[in-house]
């Protein structure tokens, strides 16, 4: 049966991740799959340095249209289902339930925590990948977590937090983050669990990739056995605040 990957975000991380997925499909190095791609933006020239799936001809066009074209060029036969929108509290559960694995390539904390929560609630594995300036963080969480994203980062930052718009981002660092996230996603599609339980950090200035064990927190609100108040539904208020502004 064809598996489905939900790619959330077709930007600096989603773009290289889609390239890796397309190449894996084209070369037959993974089981058959299709991509559900979610984004609501257009291609901008100022982002082309990191959105390497796109080119000059795509500037001003819908990212999803450009993504479908670019993937078709590289991997004929790989079906891409566009979803024009963001992950939102009232849509996330249905979107995630309909796929086998989620690749979180979003650009804001709200979507990142929302994706983690939705994936855990419906029992889907999720790969999170983020990048700011020279720094990237990638981790994969199994269905059911233990550990999960909230085991590492308990809750959204208070106040404004740096993102690509305010702090900048280095294109090749996004490339590493996207490629690594795609590789972890492909492992999950192959039934390989070796990517779970680690957090990868990449420092582009030192060209240093580190992997340290990620442990399940017993009091994790999302997957902890001893959590006093488990997250079992998506409440919009949980994903609001200064740090969620895109």
């Amino acid at each position: 049966m064809t598996k489905r990957v939900l790619l959330v975000g077709a930007g600096g991380i989603g773009s290289p991740a889609a390239l890796v997925l397309a190449q894996a499909y084209a070369t037959g190095t993974c089981p058959p799959f299709e991509i559900v791609a979610a984004d609501d933006d257009v291609v901008e020239r100022s982002n082309l340095h990191r959105q390497i799936l796109f080119s000059d001809r795509d500037v001003g066009t819908d990212k999803l249209d450009a993504l479908v074209r670019a993937v078709a060029d590289r991997a004929p036969g790989l079906r891409v289902v566009p979803y024009r929108g963001r992950l939102l509290p009232d849509t996330a559960i249905d979107l995630v339930r309909d796929v086998d694995v989620v690749l979180d390539a979003t650009d804001n904390f709200a979507s990142r925590f929302l994706g983690a929560d939705a994936a855990n609630i419906v029992g889907r594995p999720i790969v999170h990948s983020a990048s700011v300036r020279w720094h990237a963080t990638v981790l994969a969480s199994a269905a059911g977590g233990r550990p999960c994203y909230r085991c590492l980062f308990e809750d959204l930052p208070e106040g404004p937090a740096p993102d690509c718009a305010t702090a900048g981002v280095v294109g090749p660092v996004c490339g590493v983050a996207g490629a690594l996230a795609a590789e972890l996603t492909l492992r999950i599609l192959r039934g390989d669990e070796s990517g779970f339980g680690w957090v990868y950090t990449y420092d582009g200035r030192r060209d240093s990739l580190r992997r340290v064990p990620l442990r399940a927190r017993a009091t994790c609100e999302l997957c902890g056995a001893l959590a006093s108040d488990r997250i079992v539904r998506l409440e919009a208020g949980r994903y609001a605040g200064d740090a969620c502004q895109d």
Partner: peptide, 9 residues
């Protein structure tokens, strides 16, 4: 090592 939550992509 300090590992902060980051959100960019």
């Amino acid at each position: 090592s300090i590992v902060p939550a980051i959100a960019g992509g």
